[in-house]
Amino acid sequence: MRLPCPYCGVRDAHEFSYLGDAAPRRPDPAAPDAADAFHDYVYLRDNPAGAIRELWYHGAGCRRWIVVDRDTRTHAIAGATFASGSASGDAS
């Protein structure tokens, strides 16, 4: 598989580490239901057959975390963005 790193360009998946679904957000630790929310955040994952946005780490390249749009049925990749949310990935 080849992933389009927004900084480095298209690279072989060997350069990346996989994390998983990019949708879950770390819950508010001060919320009254934090224990349940963190349980869901850490353990509960959707496993869709189809399009998913997922986190990959370009550890052997620019060391950016990226969000890849992938179809789990075909491995077709629609694109990738920096996980930090900015266009430049500058954590800004």
Binding site: Y7, C62, R64, F82, D90, A91, S92
Partner: peptide
């Protein structure tokens, strides 16, 4: 701010990551 080398005779800056 890209995987490029920016240089003069004296010094070179090699982009290795965003802002890096």
């Amino acid at each position: 701010d890209a995987p490029k080398v920016s240089f003069t005779a004296d010094i070179a800056f090699i982009g290795t990551g965003p802002g890096r």
